[in-house]
Simulated assay, not measured.
Amino acid sequence: MVWIKFIVTAALIVLAANQLAKYGDVIAIRTRLSGMFIGVLLLAGATSLPEVLTSISSLQQNTPNLAAGNLLGSNTFNMFLLAVLDMANHNQRILRKALLKHALTGSLAMVMIGMVAFFMLANLDLSIGWVGVDSLLILGFYVVAVRIIQGNAAPAPQTQEEDLPVDGKLPSLRAGLIGFGLAAAALVVVTPIMVESANEIAVLTGLGTTFIGTTLVALVTSLPELVTTLAAAKIGATDMAIGNLFGSNMFNMFAVGLTDMFFTQGRFLAAIDPSFLLVAMLGLLMTGIGVVGNLAKLEKKLWVIELDALALILLYFGGMYLLYLRG
């Protein structure tokens, strides 16, 4: 019964998040913002909303490890999706096509993941109210990072999704905003039920909330990124597709700081299991490989997959196996 509840709620979350991304695209077209900027900010925020709501719900059910596993595990899964994107577009050199456009976003995501890992190790026992100073620094850096991206987003050639005609077939901006809000509301209702069932699965299987959060829950909350990324790549919007993944990693680390706002028993980073350092470092390594894949002129392929994409796949499954052994 618990597995049925988990699968049904997971499907509803993916459906609602896909609608969130769909109406986010409407907002992008109607406001005529750049594909890269929309991918990094609005789309990344929209598709990462399940992670945020799942983490907050996990705290309400007194399982901070599930919250941490969800956010840090989503980083690794997002980079795994880069490899999926490469295999789905094996006729193009998708990881090279973006060139330098996403090196800045990927680098800033690496800095934020590194900050989280550093603060987990440093264990700074400083708080303002109930919120840790480490979390406030993470939140502050995200704001700075967004300003840096915005300031360096030079006017780029219009991508295909931005060239779509704004006519009667496209919902209005008002309809886009209403649809976006309704999809977000549906996530707020369904997410706590999914988290409750994930907790029950962790107990029944004996795998614990650390492993379940990093794998099963992170997979469910990252499925919107998968669907949105493949859909964006299918219409040729590689800026939006890749920007969504790197931007989601930035937003996930912002969500770590945001989660601390809802954790009233102390500092959130001090409450989670030290084994999450492995997950954080795995996310850092994979994001680094993703950045290298955008910069390096690697011409070799192994069948239909580029070598850096293969490295992402091997790192992801190897890291999950190590986490399973530690659990």
Rank of each mutant, 00 (worst) to 15 (best):
V143W: 15
V190Q: 09
G114L: 13
L315A: 10
L204I: 14
A17D: 07
D308S: 08
A185T: 13
G176N: 10
L245R: 03
D273C: 13
M320K: 03
S248D: 04
S55M: 03
T214P: 12
M320P: 03
L124P: 12
N91A: 12
L177T: 01
A154T: 06
K300N: 12
T205K: 10
Q92T: 12
F276V: 07
F276I: 06
L41Y: 12
G319D: 00
P224Y: 09
N18S: 01
G45H: 08
N152R: 05
A145G: 00
A109V: 06
A10V: 12
A46Q: 12
G208S: 07
A11V: 14
L126N: 06
V190A: 13
A16D: 09
K301Y: 12
V133E: 04
P165G: 00
Y23N: 01
A237T: 09
I148V: 09
L66M: 11
T76L: 15
A122Y: 06
R147Y: 13
F262M: 05
L295T: 13
A175M: 10
F37V: 00
L43G: 04
A17K: 11
N152A: 09
M115A: 04
G140M: 07
Q19R: 09
A10G: 06
P155F: 05
K101Y: 01
A44N: 08
N70E: 06
L126F: 15
L245K: 01
L226W: 11
K234H: 15
A241L: 15
T63N: 14
I242G: 01
R96P: 03
I305K: 11
L72P: 11
Y324T: 05
V40H: 01
L99P: 05
G293M: 11
R32Q: 00
E196F: 15
V116L: 03
G208T: 07
Q265G: 10
G213E: 06
I242M: 06
M112V: 01
M112H: 01
I149Y: 01
L216D: 06
Q150H: 11
I201R: 03
Y142A: 00
P50W: 10
A241R: 14
G179W: 03
M253S: 01
I313S: 00
P157L: 10
L15E: 07
K300T: 15
G114C: 09
G35C: 11
I289T: 03
M250Q: 04
E306S: 11
L282A: 04
L284G: 05
D134E: 11
F77N: 03
A241E: 14
M286E: 00
E299I: 14
I27L: 01
A175S: 05
I138W: 05
S275W: 09
A241F: 15
L136R: 05
A241T: 15
E200L: 14
Q19A: 13
Y324S: 02
S222I: 05
P192Y: 14
